[in-house]
Protein backbone atom coordinates (compact mmCIF):
# COMPACT_ATOMS: atom_id res chain seq x y z
CA UNK A 1 0.00 0.00 0.00
CA UNK A 2 2.91 2.33 0.70
CA UNK A 3 4.18 1.66 -2.79
CA UNK A 4 0.76 2.55 -4.21
CA UNK A 5 0.61 5.77 -2.25
CA UNK A 6 4.08 6.71 -3.40
CA UNK A 7 3.08 6.15 -7.01
CA UNK A 8 -0.03 8.29 -6.57
CA UNK A 9 2.07 11.05 -5.06
CA UNK A 10 4.58 10.95 -7.90
CA UNK A 11 1.75 11.03 -10.43
CA UNK A 12 0.16 13.92 -8.58
CA UNK A 13 3.35 15.96 -8.76
CA UNK A 14 3.74 14.83 -12.37
CA UNK A 15 0.46 16.58 -13.14
CA UNK A 16 1.47 19.71 -11.27
CA UNK A 17 4.86 19.88 -12.95
CA UNK A 18 3.61 19.16 -16.44
CA UNK A 19 0.94 21.88 -16.46
CA UNK A 20 3.28 24.79 -17.27
CA UNK A 21 5.01 22.61 -19.86
CA UNK A 22 1.70 21.67 -21.39
CA UNK A 23 0.45 25.24 -21.60
CA UNK A 24 3.70 26.47 -23.10
CA UNK A 25 3.84 23.50 -25.44
CA UNK A 26 0.34 24.16 -26.76
CA UNK A 27 1.26 27.83 -27.06
CA UNK A 28 4.21 26.88 -29.21
CA UNK A 29 1.99 24.58 -31.20
CA UNK A 30 -0.21 27.46 -32.36
CA UNK A 31 2.67 29.60 -33.57
CA UNK A 32 4.74 26.82 -35.09
CA UNK A 33 1.75 25.36 -36.87
CA UNK A 34 1.26 28.80 -38.40
CA UNK A 35 4.86 28.81 -39.58
CA UNK A 36 6.43 31.00 -36.89
CA UNK A 37 9.26 29.44 -34.90
CA UNK A 38 9.03 30.59 -31.35
CA UNK A 39 11.96 30.04 -29.06
CA UNK A 40 10.66 32.96 -27.01
CA UNK A 41 8.21 30.77 -25.08
CA UNK A 42 10.54 30.96 -22.11
CA UNK A 43 10.55 34.74 -22.08
CA UNK A 44 6.81 35.07 -22.56
CA UNK A 45 6.16 32.69 -19.68
CA UNK A 46 8.53 34.68 -17.52
CA UNK A 47 6.88 38.04 -18.18
CA UNK A 48 3.51 36.37 -17.69
CA UNK A 49 4.61 35.04 -14.33
CA UNK A 50 5.95 38.41 -13.28
CA UNK A 51 3.00 40.45 -14.52
CA UNK A 52 0.54 38.01 -12.96
CA UNK A 53 2.14 37.96 -9.54
CA UNK A 54 2.69 41.74 -9.51
CA UNK A 55 -0.85 42.61 -10.53
CA UNK A 56 -2.35 40.05 -8.16
CA UNK A 57 -0.32 41.46 -5.27
CA UNK A 58 -1.13 45.08 -6.07
CA UNK A 59 -4.84 44.68 -6.85
CA UNK A 60 -5.46 41.78 -4.45
CA UNK A 61 -7.18 39.71 -7.07
CA UNK A 62 -6.12 36.50 -8.72
CA UNK A 63 -8.27 37.17 -11.76
CA UNK A 64 -6.75 40.59 -12.39
CA UNK A 65 -3.37 38.90 -12.05
CA UNK A 66 -4.26 36.31 -14.65
CA UNK A 67 -5.62 38.96 -16.99
CA UNK A 68 -2.49 41.05 -16.70
CA UNK A 69 -0.29 38.01 -17.25
CA UNK A 70 -2.15 37.24 -20.46
CA UNK A 71 -2.07 40.86 -21.59
CA UNK A 72 1.66 41.32 -21.16
CA UNK A 73 2.45 37.94 -22.61
CA UNK A 74 0.35 38.71 -25.68
CA UNK A 75 2.15 42.05 -26.00
CA UNK A 76 5.48 40.22 -26.15
CA UNK A 77 4.04 37.79 -28.67
CA UNK A 78 3.02 40.75 -30.80
CA UNK A 79 6.55 42.14 -30.66
CA UNK A 80 7.70 38.78 -31.98
CA UNK A 81 5.07 39.07 -34.68
CA UNK A 82 6.03 42.63 -35.53
CA UNK A 83 9.64 41.58 -36.04
CA UNK A 84 9.09 38.27 -37.76
CA UNK A 85 5.86 38.82 -39.71
CA UNK A 86 5.74 42.51 -40.53
CA UNK A 87 9.47 43.08 -40.85
CA UNK A 88 10.36 39.54 -41.94
CA UNK A 89 13.17 39.38 -39.44
CA UNK A 90 14.82 36.17 -38.37
CA UNK A 91 12.37 34.41 -36.07
CA UNK A 92 15.05 32.73 -34.01
CA UNK A 93 16.85 36.01 -33.42
CA UNK A 94 13.63 37.69 -32.41
CA UNK A 95 12.83 34.87 -29.99
CA UNK A 96 16.28 35.08 -28.41
CA UNK A 97 15.81 38.84 -28.02
CA UNK A 98 12.46 38.35 -26.29
CA UNK A 99 13.98 35.88 -23.85
CA UNK A 100 16.68 38.37 -22.88
CA UNK A 101 14.35 41.33 -22.56
CA UNK A 102 12.05 39.25 -20.39
CA UNK A 103 14.84 37.92 -18.18
CA UNK A 104 16.32 41.38 -17.61
CA UNK A 105 13.18 43.47 -17.28
CA UNK A 106 11.42 41.19 -14.81
CA UNK A 107 14.37 41.48 -12.43
CA UNK A 108 14.92 45.21 -12.90
CA UNK A 109 11.24 46.16 -12.64
CA UNK A 110 10.64 43.70 -9.80
CA UNK A 111 13.48 45.20 -7.81
CA UNK A 112 12.43 48.76 -8.58
CA UNK A 113 8.77 48.25 -7.71
CA UNK A 114 8.88 45.87 -4.75
CA UNK A 115 12.48 46.05 -3.44
CA UNK A 116 12.59 42.39 -2.47
CA UNK A 117 15.60 41.30 -4.49
CA UNK A 118 13.62 40.61 -7.65
CA UNK A 119 10.75 38.89 -5.90
CA UNK A 120 7.19 40.09 -5.87
CA UNK A 121 5.34 40.23 -2.54
CA UNK A 122 4.15 36.86 -1.28
CA UNK A 123 0.58 36.35 -2.46
CA UNK A 124 -2.13 36.13 0.18
CA UNK A 125 -5.08 33.75 0.00
CA UNK A 126 -7.50 35.14 -2.54
CA UNK A 127 -4.68 36.59 -4.58
CA UNK A 128 -3.72 33.19 -5.91
CA UNK A 129 -5.66 30.35 -7.43
CA UNK A 130 -6.66 27.90 -4.74
CA UNK A 131 -7.05 24.17 -5.11
CA UNK A 132 -10.55 23.02 -5.92
CA UNK A 133 -11.77 20.07 -3.89
CA UNK A 134 -14.19 17.99 -5.87
CA UNK A 135 -17.43 16.85 -4.24
CA UNK A 136 -16.96 13.76 -2.18
CA UNK A 137 -13.18 13.78 -2.38
CA UNK A 138 -12.74 13.77 1.37
CA UNK A 139 -15.50 11.23 1.85
CA UNK A 140 -13.98 8.53 -0.33
CA UNK A 141 -10.31 9.29 0.41
CA UNK A 142 -10.07 6.17 2.56
CA UNK A 143 -11.50 3.84 -0.05
CA UNK A 144 -8.59 1.75 -1.33
CA UNK A 145 -7.24 2.41 -4.83
CA UNK A 146 -10.09 4.62 -6.06
CA UNK A 147 -10.01 6.91 -3.04
CA UNK A 148 -6.45 8.23 -3.37
CA UNK A 149 -6.73 8.41 -7.14
CA UNK A 150 -9.87 10.54 -6.94
CA UNK A 151 -8.77 12.65 -4.01
CA UNK A 152 -5.16 13.20 -5.03
CA UNK A 153 -5.00 12.94 -8.79
CA UNK A 154 -8.35 14.18 -10.00
CA UNK A 155 -9.47 16.48 -7.24
CA UNK A 156 -7.46 19.09 -5.40
CA UNK A 157 -5.91 21.07 -8.25
CA UNK A 158 -6.37 24.69 -9.13
CA UNK A 159 -8.63 25.82 -11.95
CA UNK A 160 -5.61 26.46 -14.20
CA UNK A 161 -4.67 22.77 -14.11
CA UNK A 162 -8.07 21.78 -15.42
CA UNK A 163 -7.87 24.60 -17.92
CA UNK A 164 -4.55 23.30 -19.23
CA UNK A 165 -5.86 19.80 -19.76
CA UNK A 166 -9.09 21.11 -21.26
CA UNK A 167 -7.00 23.03 -23.75
CA UNK A 168 -5.75 19.77 -25.25
CA UNK A 169 -9.04 18.63 -26.81
CA UNK A 170 -9.94 22.25 -27.46
CA UNK A 171 -6.72 22.83 -29.40
CA UNK A 172 -7.30 19.61 -31.30
CA UNK A 173 -10.78 20.81 -32.17
CA UNK A 174 -9.57 24.24 -33.24
CA UNK A 175 -6.74 22.81 -35.28
CA UNK A 176 -8.57 20.03 -37.08
CA UNK A 177 -12.25 20.96 -36.98
CA UNK A 178 -12.49 24.68 -37.54
CA UNK A 179 -11.90 26.89 -40.53
CA UNK A 180 -9.36 28.94 -38.58
CA UNK A 181 -7.42 25.79 -37.73
CA UNK A 182 -7.38 24.57 -41.30
CA UNK A 183 -6.13 27.92 -42.53
CA UNK A 184 -3.58 28.10 -39.74
CA UNK A 185 -2.16 24.72 -40.64
CA UNK A 186 -2.16 25.72 -44.30
CA UNK A 187 -0.28 28.92 -43.59
CA UNK A 188 2.38 26.88 -41.85
CA UNK A 189 2.75 24.52 -44.76
CA UNK A 190 2.18 26.65 -47.83
CA UNK A 191 1.45 30.32 -47.19
CA UNK A 192 1.38 31.13 -50.89
CA UNK A 193 -1.64 28.87 -51.34
CA UNK A 194 -3.45 30.60 -48.50
CA UNK A 195 -2.59 33.96 -49.99
CA UNK A 196 -3.90 32.88 -53.38
CA UNK A 197 -7.19 32.00 -51.72
CA UNK A 198 -7.45 35.62 -50.69
CA UNK A 199 -6.71 35.17 -47.02
CA UNK A 200 -4.22 37.41 -45.27
CA UNK A 201 -1.16 35.41 -44.28
CA UNK A 202 0.04 38.11 -41.90
CA UNK A 203 -3.27 38.44 -40.05
CA UNK A 204 -3.58 34.66 -39.68
CA UNK A 205 -0.09 34.43 -38.27
CA UNK A 206 -0.74 37.32 -35.92
CA UNK A 207 -3.84 35.58 -34.63
CA UNK A 208 -1.87 32.39 -34.07
CA UNK A 209 0.69 34.39 -32.12
CA UNK A 210 -2.06 35.94 -29.99
CA UNK A 211 -3.17 32.40 -29.08
CA UNK A 212 0.45 31.68 -28.19
CA UNK A 213 0.61 34.76 -26.00
CA UNK A 214 -2.59 33.87 -24.16
CA UNK A 215 -1.39 30.37 -23.35
CA UNK A 216 2.13 31.41 -22.29
CA UNK A 217 0.49 34.06 -20.11
CA UNK A 218 -1.59 31.39 -18.36
CA UNK A 219 1.51 29.20 -18.07
CA UNK A 220 3.37 32.05 -16.40
CA UNK A 221 0.44 32.81 -14.10
CA UNK A 222 0.39 29.14 -13.10
CA UNK A 223 4.06 29.29 -12.12
CA UNK A 224 3.84 32.41 -10.02
CA UNK A 225 0.27 32.20 -8.72
CA UNK A 226 -0.33 28.49 -8.22
CA UNK A 227 2.92 26.61 -7.95
CA UNK A 228 4.63 29.40 -6.10
CA UNK A 229 3.04 32.17 -4.06
CA UNK A 230 4.82 34.94 -5.92
CA UNK A 231 7.37 35.67 -8.60
CA UNK A 232 11.00 34.65 -8.17
CA UNK A 233 13.58 35.74 -10.70
CA UNK A 234 14.24 33.30 -13.53
CA UNK A 235 11.48 31.09 -12.22
CA UNK A 236 10.80 29.53 -15.60
CA UNK A 237 14.26 27.92 -15.39
CA UNK A 238 14.31 26.51 -18.89
CA UNK A 239 10.71 25.25 -18.92
CA UNK A 240 10.08 27.12 -22.14
CA UNK A 241 12.83 25.15 -23.81
CA UNK A 242 11.57 21.86 -22.40
CA UNK A 243 8.15 22.78 -23.78
CA UNK A 244 9.80 23.35 -27.14
CA UNK A 245 11.42 19.94 -26.87
CA UNK A 246 8.06 18.43 -25.95
CA UNK A 247 6.49 20.09 -28.97
CA UNK A 248 8.99 18.42 -31.27
CA UNK A 249 8.62 15.19 -29.34
CA UNK A 250 4.88 15.43 -29.93
CA UNK A 251 5.41 16.05 -33.62
CA UNK A 252 3.31 19.21 -33.40
CA UNK A 253 0.11 17.38 -32.40
CA UNK A 254 -1.99 18.43 -29.38
CA UNK A 255 -2.74 15.02 -27.85
CA UNK A 256 0.83 13.88 -28.30
CA UNK A 257 1.86 17.16 -26.70
CA UNK A 258 -0.04 16.23 -23.57
CA UNK A 259 1.68 12.86 -23.33
CA UNK A 260 5.10 14.36 -24.05
CA UNK A 261 4.59 16.97 -21.32
CA UNK A 262 3.35 14.33 -18.90
CA UNK A 263 6.43 12.25 -19.67
CA UNK A 264 8.79 15.17 -19.11
CA UNK A 265 6.84 16.17 -16.00
CA UNK A 266 7.12 12.61 -14.75
CA UNK A 267 10.89 12.61 -15.26
CA UNK A 268 11.06 15.80 -13.22
CA UNK A 269 8.80 14.44 -10.50
CA UNK A 270 10.67 11.16 -10.35
CA UNK A 271 14.06 12.86 -10.04
CA UNK A 272 12.74 15.00 -7.18
CA UNK A 273 11.24 11.95 -5.51
CA UNK A 274 14.30 9.75 -5.90
CA UNK A 275 16.90 12.35 -4.85
CA UNK A 276 19.74 9.92 -5.38
CA UNK A 277 18.14 6.87 -3.82
CA UNK A 278 18.85 3.73 -5.83
CA UNK A 279 16.41 2.29 -8.34
CA UNK A 280 15.87 -1.43 -8.78
CA UNK A 281 17.89 -2.93 -11.66
CA UNK A 282 19.79 0.20 -12.70
CA UNK A 283 21.11 1.30 -9.33
CA UNK A 284 21.64 4.93 -8.42
CA UNK A 285 20.72 7.39 -11.13
CA UNK A 286 22.33 10.85 -10.93
CA UNK A 287 19.81 13.68 -10.69
CA UNK A 288 21.60 15.45 -13.54
CA UNK A 289 20.91 12.49 -15.79
CA UNK A 290 17.20 12.74 -15.11
CA UNK A 291 17.30 16.48 -15.75
CA UNK A 292 19.09 16.01 -19.06
CA UNK A 293 16.86 13.16 -20.19
CA UNK A 294 14.14 15.28 -21.87
CA UNK A 295 16.79 17.00 -23.97
CA UNK A 296 18.57 13.77 -24.80
CA UNK A 297 15.29 12.12 -25.81
CA UNK A 298 14.42 15.08 -28.02
CA UNK A 299 17.81 14.98 -29.74
CA UNK A 300 17.41 11.27 -30.36
CA UNK A 301 13.95 11.86 -31.74
CA UNK A 302 15.18 14.70 -33.91
CA UNK A 303 17.90 12.45 -35.23
CA UNK A 304 15.14 10.23 -36.51
CA UNK A 305 15.99 7.20 -34.45
CA UNK A 306 12.52 6.92 -32.90
CA UNK A 307 10.17 8.04 -35.61
CA UNK A 308 10.68 11.20 -37.61
CA UNK A 309 9.69 14.67 -36.46
CA UNK A 310 8.77 16.71 -39.51
CA UNK A 311 8.15 20.36 -38.72
CA UNK A 312 5.60 22.51 -40.59
CA UNK A 313 7.13 23.18 -43.97
CA UNK A 314 7.02 26.96 -43.97
CA UNK A 315 8.29 27.22 -40.41
CA UNK A 316 10.90 29.90 -39.92
CA UNK A 317 10.50 31.37 -43.39
CA UNK A 318 9.09 34.89 -43.58
CA UNK A 319 6.35 35.16 -46.17
CA UNK A 320 6.99 37.48 -49.08
CA UNK A 321 3.95 38.25 -51.14
CA UNK A 322 5.39 38.77 -54.59
CA UNK A 323 8.51 37.31 -56.14
Amino acid sequence: MDMFNAIVQVLDSTIRLSVPLLLACLAGLYSERAGIFDIGLEGKMLVGAFAGASAAAVFHSALIGLGTAILISVAFALVHGFASITHRGNQIVSGVAINFIAAGSTIILGQAWFQQGGRTPALQPGERFEAITWPGAEAIRDVPIIGPIYAELISGHSILVYFAFAMVPFTWWVLFRTRFGLRMRAVGENPAAVDTAGISVAWLRYRALICTGILTGVAGAYLSMVQNGGFVKDMTAGKGYIALAALIFAKWKPVNAMFACLLFGFLDAASIRLQGSPLPLVGKVPAQFMQALPYVLTVILLAGFIGKAIPPRAGGVPYVKER
Binding site: V79, F82, A83, S84, H87, R88, G89, N90, Q91, V93, S94, V96, A97, I98, N99, F100, I101, A102, A103, G104, S105, I107, I108
Partner: peptide, 20 residues
Protein backbone atom coordinates in the same frame (compact mmCIF):
# COMPACT_ATOMS: atom_id res chain seq x y z
CA UNK B 1 20.54 42.74 -15.17
CA UNK B 2 20.06 46.03 -17.01
CA UNK B 3 22.71 44.71 -19.39
CA UNK B 4 20.55 41.71 -20.14
CA UNK B 5 17.77 44.05 -21.23
CA UNK B 6 20.16 46.09 -23.37
CA UNK B 7 21.50 42.87 -24.84
CA UNK B 8 17.98 41.76 -25.70
CA UNK B 9 17.14 45.12 -27.23
CA UNK B 10 20.32 45.09 -29.30
CA UNK B 11 19.49 41.61 -30.56
CA UNK B 12 15.95 42.75 -31.34
CA UNK B 13 16.81 45.96 -33.16
CA UNK B 14 20.15 45.03 -34.73
CA UNK B 15 19.07 41.48 -35.47
CA UNK B 16 15.41 40.75 -35.91
CA UNK B 17 14.39 44.28 -36.86
CA UNK B 18 17.53 45.18 -38.78
CA UNK B 19 15.54 46.14 -41.86
CA UNK B 20 12.94 48.22 -40.04
Amino acid sequence: DMIVIIQGLVILFAGALEHM
